[in-house]
Design a protein around this nucleic acid. Structure first.
Length: 226
DNA sequence: CCAAAGATGCGCT
DNA sequence: GCGCATCTTTGGG
């Protein structure tokens, strides 16, 4: 008998963006679709704050960015470079966490069939089937694998009936690094990216194996539990 | 118009 | 497994 997902308490989201980004790594997103619970464990996040040029909120308060200013735990989805991205608003108005990568999660609630459903939601690759550990290894891949669309979801909150965040007790060691994909003029160089140590190969880019990457310079190890 | 918090295929190591 | 070119789609200037 499959149990029902147990969502985190609302208060989980009431943290500053960096602590929230750290706390989210290791938690599980579940999305009810077609009678099954699709599931993905978050393995990579990035924090963004209102007062730094890298954040969308710093570009101004427009209708599409309004969810970044909404109460903690509000979903902010945007479209960029041909794909959607999922963020959660944090404690400070204009602060948020970008969910950058995840790995499919299988258990009694989300059986292997749900994982295969996720695979079908992604466009086929030229060379053979998509590796399971790369099913959600990017912010747009994750949205597609969970069938999250910008227009339908942005501005909403988690919903116990169809989209939940669950804490299954994973308290991983984290790799901290600089955020990715930010243009030079808007970059602050802040190391506000957090990757699950055991799932670095499922991150957007592996922070440990980049050419010349050095501990204490390009990345930092954060012990389990913070 | 076009930069943007991206993804893929391909050539190389 | 990495770097780079190429393709992506759209909100907002």
């Amino acid at each position: 008998m499959a149990r029902t997902p147990k969502p985190v308490h609302e208060q989980f989201f009431d943290r500053d963006p960096v602590p929230l980004a750290r706390a989210l790594v290791g938690t599980v997103l579940r999305r009810r679709l077609g009678g099954q619970w699709l599931a993905a464990k978050i393995v990579e996040t990035e924090a963004y704050a209102l007062d730094e040029p890298a954040s969308h909120s710093s570009l101004g308060r427009t209708p599409s960015r309004e969810p970044m200013f909404a109460p903690p735990g509000t979903l902010y989805l945007y479209w960029s470079r041909g794909g959607p991205s999922l963020n959660l608003s944090a404690r400070g108005s204009g602060d948020a966490v970008l969910i950058k990568a995840a790995v499919p999660h299988v258990d009694s609630v989300s059986p292997p069939q749900a994982l295969e459903h996720m695979r079908t939601l992604l466009p086929p690759l030229a060379n053979g089937p998509r590796a399971t550990h790369r099913l959600c290894s990017g912010q747009s891949l994750l949205c597609r694998a969970l069938d999250l669309h910008v227009k339908e979801w942005t501005g909403l909150r988690f919903d116990p009936a169809r989209f939940v965040l669950e804490d299954l007790g994973d308290r991983p060691e984290l790799v901290q690094a600089r955020r990715l994909g930010i243009s030079a003029v808007r970059s602050t160089g802040l190391p506000w990216r957090f990757v699950h140590r055991e799932h670095v190969r499922s991150a957007t880019k592996n922070p440990l194996t980049r050419r010349g990457a050095a501990q204490g310079v390009d990345y930092w190890m954060l012990p389990s539990g913070g």
